[in-house]
Amino acid sequence: MSETKTFEQKMARLEEIVKLLESGTVQLDKSLTLYEEGSLLASELAKTLNEAKIKIEEITTKTNE
């Protein structure tokens, strides 16, 4: 499911997980699930950054010439 999320959404989720865990209000078993999700997100994000290649497109309009 996380595959369909954008980089931005994943980053936001990661930050949300950090906040949740740091709040200390999460049950231990739930926090382990969050931890798994968080580490997965972090590695996905790093992978995305490492493997991305910039796309550049030039769009000309009539009045330019």
Binding site: V18, G38, L49
Partner: peptide, 27 residues
């Protein structure tokens, strides 16, 4: 900047790990 982002990602991961170890210490 991708370098900042990478650092953010690692930072967040470290914070998650720290939280978990705090939680398990507490438990």
């Amino acid at each position: 900047n991708q370098l900042d982002l990478m650092q953010d990602i690692n930072n967040n991961l470290e914070r998650i790990k720290l939280s978990i170890s705090n939680l398990s210490d507490k438990a």
